[in-house]
Amino acid sequence: MVAIVLGIALLAFARASPFLQQLSGLGADIAEVSSDITDMPKQLLNTASAYLESRQTMRQRIQELEDKQLMLSARAQKMEALTAENMRYRALLNSPMAEEATMMVARIVAVSPDVNRHLLTVDRGSDDGVVIGQSVINSEGVMGQIVQVGISASRVLLITDVQHGIPVLNNRTGQRAIADGVGRLDHLVIQNLASTSDVNTGDLWVTSGLGERFPTGYPVGITSETTTSGDAAYLSVTIQPAAALDVASHVLIISSVDAAE
């Protein structure tokens, strides 16, 4: 009986108590250490295969990487030009400059064993300057946000988790909404839009920046289905996430300049 009452008390204070939140962060550290241990045979195999790889294969791979780098740097140059142009337009319109984001690469080291939660553990923690609330993306789009921070690892709540909602913007029409996770990796849902809303299948939804948690303009997903409610008053939109949430191995933890400082 005492154990049950204690369990209920812990559960009730789990959100409010800073001590319990720190303890949850410790869980991320435990997950990272365990992952290092369980990955050890795989790492050893990788190291051994790297030694055994022929010189020709390695040269070929280096060549491929050099080609890829060349293409990416050409793209980056174009991006820089576009950014400068964008800033000039913003200055002309007297609108505030878009905030610059700092990024940090992190490796996904574990997945939460709880089947109802979409939580990942990454190998960056408070020692690396990670704080709760930083957003996490990969090369394709937004993945989630940091919810627990340990010393050397953190936990990321994916946008598809039932507890997650993300402010989004229709890239075509500019309509704002909140996309909620439903516990499925393959879709998010926007509920209760006015039935007159202009939403088509294939529309891209990006982060709107409302709430100042996620930076503006990162792809969230693409409309895969729209459903009208029985009385035709509301529209429900199903979005397929842009980021492949279950196959990524590395992510970027981003924060605004203010947060980084």
């Binding site: 812990l10 869980g27 997950a31 939660r117």
Partner: peptide, 25 residues
């Protein structure tokens, strides 16, 4: 059982105490 429940919650990243109730029972 209660202590193992706390460990389960730490590993899963879920709210501490939720697994302890079930395991205590």
């Amino acid at each position: 059982a209660f202590a193992v429940g706390v460990l389960v919650n730490l590993i899963e990243g879920s709210y501490i105490g939720s697994a302890s109730i079930g395991l205590s029972v």
